[in-house]
């Protein structure tokens, strides 16, 4: 399969679908006119201030999660790694639930608390995994991530058990992930912020190829392994923390998209990372469109959609690959 035409085509389709569909019954003609700045105020607001930023944000977050997953899988040399593996989801969940329990309000209160929780988890896991001589032991990194995640989950459980019931549903739904809070402001902040870690990770594509061979062979092929691992871990974690802040915890994309790209087009990171970005972005933008229309006016958590759509596709790919 020709890679770039397929991926770019999918991206355009997913973005178009994201803007074209929604609970409000607008015709394609109305949507197209609204994008050009024509139409009544309500239509303009729906298309230009709700659907467009929301779809673009879903695309950016999906792409970021897929890139982060690919990087972490190479860093810890484990195909099961995903962006939340390293304690991030636990930390973010704890931050969000604590904020809701403490009655923090405002549209930015919960996301910021989640980001703070994720950052705390990153720092803690990093401290645990750095052993003698500033060596980042990736096996300890995995274990520390699981342990910190479990600890945070226990605290979340305690808060949920002890706090009054109102707000709990919103806390849990927020954790399941979604783009209901999307706006041009959120999109702008995330886009500016995400550019830095994304650029850092893509810059290290060739070093990631080497690291996938193992640390010793990577050294003998010219990689400065220790500083490299620290840079990768911090860039990947900071990117995930921002994704959590704008969209909660969206599973599956970061785990599976990198594998799908490897199965289809190989594992060299120079093309794997951009491909994963496009495919992850397309999947999440399309999944968000489904999430808000399938049961309108109710909406599904987008992570539920990515898993329901993606798991069967992935299972078929893996089966075909294994034979």
């Amino acid at each position: 399969m020709k890679r770039w035409p397929v991926l770019l085509g999918l991206a355009v389709l997913a973005l178009a679908a994201g803007v074209a569909v929604g609970p409000a019954d607008l015709s394609l003609h109305q949507v197209a006119r609204a994008l050009g700045g024509n139409g009544d105020t309500a239509t303009l607001a729906i298309v230009r201030d709700l659907r467009l930023p929301r779809t673009l944000l879903a695309f950016l977050v999906g792409g970021s999660l897929a890139v982060t997953g690919a990087v972490l899988q190479a860093l810890v040399r484990n195909p099961l790694a995903d962006p939340y593996l390293l304690g991030l989801s636990g930390g973010a969940g704890l931050g969000a639930v604590a904020a809701i329990a403490l009655g923090v309000v405002g549209s930015w209160g919960v996301p910021l608390a989640a980001a703070a929780g994720a950052l705390a988890a990153i720092v803690l896991v990093y401290r645990l995994a750095v052993v003698a001589d500033a060596v980042l032991d990736t096996r300890v990194l995995l274990l520390a991530g699981v342990v910190v995640g479990s600890f945070a989950a226990a605290l979340v459980g305690a808060i949920l058990a002890l706090s009054p019931a109102e707000g709990l549903r919103s806390a849990l739904l927020w954790l399941l992930g979604g783009f209901d809070g999307a706006s041009w402001t959120a999109l702008g902040i995330f886009a500016v912020y995400a550019t830095v870690p994304l650029a850092l990770l893509v810059r290290e594509s060739r070093m990631l190829d080497l690291l996938s061979l193992g640390e010793e062979p990577a050294r003998f092929l010219g990689a400065d392994v220790e500083p490299l691992k620290r840079r990768l871990y911090l860039a990947a974690s900071l990117l995930t923390a921002a994704a959590v802040a704008v969209s909660g915890i969206i599973g599956f994309v970061g785990l599976v998209i990198p594998h799908a790209v490897r199965v289809l087009w190989g594992a060299r990171h120079g093309s794997l990372l951009p491909s994963a970005f496009l495919l992850g972005g397309s999947l999440l933008a399309a999944a968000d469109a489904v999430a808000r229309t399938a049961f309108a006016p109710l909406s599904l958590p987008v992570g539920v959609v990515t898993a329901i759509v993606g798991v069967p596709v992935f299972a078929v790919l893996v089966r075909r690959w294994a034979t």
Binding site: A74, L210, F220, G222, A223, D224
Partner: peptide, 30 residues
């Protein structure tokens, strides 16, 4: 610097398991 040394000294080590499959030509081009 590892890169400077790697331009002059090549090592084939005892064991090495690639985490993800590569085409042989890609593996050699590393």
């Amino acid at each position: 610097r590892r890169r400077d040394l790697a331009r002059r000294v090549a090592v084939v080590a005892q064991r090495e398991e690639p985490t993800f499959p590569l085409r042989v030509r890609d593996a050699v081009s590393l």
